[in-house]
């Protein structure tokens, strides 16, 4: 089957600094793919490139077979309706309520009635495990965990097939983070989503990922979780076999 997202020969250069140097990546339909990498390894740049928000120095990105790089804004809209993005800090519009935040993409793209837009927004809010009483709140009144959930609800507003999550569990306590992992898995299974996640949370990687991609030296090393954990690359070894990595792996194996 053709990959949902295909990145080929991606090069990103900023001045003399080379972030990506011929990066290849293929993400399959229906999998949860975790992207890992050190600070400054270009995870966010890769995400922004895949979303079509940033033009790479060279290379191509195809989402469902459609090229994203160097396309007109008009052409990109069709691609953008196929994915939802949850930004790291939520990026909720602070002057709109929770319900209005979720309604916004629906009403922007489709001429639905006000009532249906509100119903669909409330359904999304329920889907991420929030009550209707959250709907009329403003982002400033939300806790960190609720902000993440609302951001997820907004990412799901247009029934995407691909969900991009940028550090979804950063800033959450371990219990909330674990609950968020379960939520992502439940939605992924329930809606048949392809999930692409940037994360540093080893517990999350062990819990949700089908495959993992590690950005090292400007390229991507991909494999199943076991393959990556057993990789001989020194950075990857240190990442998964360091103090924190061992603790998370231990939990995952004793878990089941």
């Amino acid at each position: 089957m053709a990959p949902v997202i295909e990145v080929q020969g991606l090069v990103n250069r900023f001045g003399r600094q080379v972030v990506h140097d011929g990066l290849d990546l293929a993400i399959r339909s229906g999998e949860v793919f975790c992207i890992v990498g050190g600070s400054g390894s270009g995870k966010s740049v890769l995400l922004r490139t895949m979303l079509g928000l940033q033009r790479p120095s060279a290379g191509s990105v195809r989402i469902e077979g459609r090229e994203v790089v160097r396309q007109s804004a008009q052409a990109l809209i069709a691609v953008k309706r196929r994915y939802g993005v949850m930004f790291q800090r939520g990026a909720l519009f602070s002057s709109l309520t929770v319900a209005q935040n979720v309604e916004l993409p629906i009403r922007e793209h489709f001429a639905v009635t006000r009532e249906l837009a509100r119903e669909l927004a409330l359904l999304r809010i329920r889907m991420v495990g929030l009550g209707v009483e959250a709907a009329s709140k403003y982002p400033a009144e939300l806790s960190g965990g609720m902000t993440k959930r609302v951001a997820l609800a907004r990412a799901l507003a247009l029934d995407p097939v691909i969900l991009f999550l940028d550090e979804p569990t950063s800033g959450l306590d371990p219990i909330s983070a674990a609950a968020f992992d379960e939520l992502v898995l439940e939605l992924q299974r329930g809606l048949g989503l392809t999930v692409v996640m940037i994360t540093h949370d080893l517990d999350t990687i062990f819990r949700v990922s089908n495959r993992v991609g590690v950005i090292v030296d400007g390229r991507m090393i991909t494999g199943t979780l076991e393959e990556i954990v057993d990789s001989a690359h020194p950075w990857i070894r240190q990442y998964f076999h360091g103090e924190r990595g061992r603790a998370s792996r231990g939990e995952a194996t004793s878990d089941g």
């Binding site: 489709f110 001429a111 639905v112």
Partner: peptide, 11 residues
């Protein structure tokens, strides 16, 4: 029956 057709479908 998707979000794209919903505006026409609902009425």
């Amino acid at each position: 029956w998707t979000v794209v057709e919903a505006p026409a479908l609902e009425p």
